[in-house]
Nucleic acid binder design. Sequence first.
DNA 1: CGATCCGTTGAGGTGCGTCAACGGGAGTGG
DNA 2: CCACTCCCGTTGACGCACCTCAACGGATCG
Lengths: 203, 203
Amino acid sequence: MNAILQTAELTAGYVLFDEGEASVNVYNLTSGCIKLYKLLPDGRRQVTGFLFAGDFLGLSNTEDYIYSAEAVTDVTLCKFKRTKLEGLLDEIPELEKRLLGMARHELVQAQDQILLLGRKTAKERIATFILMLSDRAQRRGEQSNPVSVPMSRNDIGDYLGLTTETVSRTLTRLRRGGIISMESDRRIALDERDALQDIAAGF
Amino acid sequence: MNAILQTAELTAGYVLFDEGEASVNVYNLTSGCIKLYKLLPDGRRQVTGFLFAGDFLGLSNTEDYIYSAEAVTDVTLCKFKRTKLEGLLDEIPELEKRLLGMARHELVQAQDQILLLGRKTAKERIATFILMLSDRAQRRGEQSNPVSVPMSRNDIGDYLGLTTETVSRTLTRLRRGGIISMESDRRIALDERDALQDIAAGF
DNA sequence: CGATCCGTTGAGGTGCGTCAACGGGAGTGG
DNA sequence: CCACTCCCGTTGACGCACCTCAACGGATCG
């Protein structure tokens, strides 16, 4: 496996690939944060996901990338050719099970996001988002409370189907309600996790 | 394969399973239409997909069903135990490739739906929906124009993140604009398919 | 120390939701 | 055969959650 991969370091803002390009590489993120997004002709943007250390990129893809990918922070990653991976598939049947499991996991996440975008209020979306960041940080063994928020308000808005201003206002309201607090723009403390979970679930 | 499946006929409104139930069965729809949906505690509903003849149900699932499933029309389907399917996986490695391909296809669809729900207007959502119905009917070898619309306005709204009323009004506007026409509530003619595609794409 | 980017806040607008009414078709029972 | 009811789709009036536009302060950087 080591024979076919190479590591890279990218600075924040670097575009790994654009939607529609041929899907030649697969990546494994080792540090930092990457956002995936789709664009409409007039510039409207939908962020479809954020990736953190340990996440794979390009695996569950068809021939072309179905989204663009851009580094949110400085990142380090491992990169290898998709053709090499497909060669490995024949040698290691177990690998296919892993891929299927990962695709299923992504599907579950995608459907939660569909519920969020279709039916949740701004407050519920923000609460869900903060909890997701915290849970994923914990799973990576990082600090989960307060949780690091590497992306901008604008990125958050494009992920949650909201505007920058609504994200900012909703965070302010949660802060005034004593549910969360913020020592800086990019760090959120979950002061009332239970309340946050109730809000996120739609109670 | 035939040894482990059984066929069934269900009437419109029949609930196959609810979100959270153990995922014991896998289905293949042979006729009719099924809707998949998630609920919030206060009753808000998000339809995550519609299934038609040829579609599988429960395949790309984890241990529990992650959505509820209800027959939209009378349906006929083949049903078999998930454990039986997993037994087949060891015998037929090809099957795993098929499953992975189907999961990938569902992921592509899910991300298109995320873009729709996050960033498209009501008009764009409806246009996208009509085109999707027509394209899928064509792929099944059914009449694609006018296209059959088996689900209610309410179901369409819950799929597109809109209300019944907005769906109805938007259809009326498209009709008045000469883009579509309707000989009945459940049948839509795509009079200006190009215009519809421009609207759906966000131009 | 100007320029730029980001986050916040306010004022005002709007697209879609809410509430209500109505008509038509299907099923039901007298 | 005809009320009667129920469900569905449509339309109108109105409200509101979120968007738009604008201003401003702080941080970063050349």
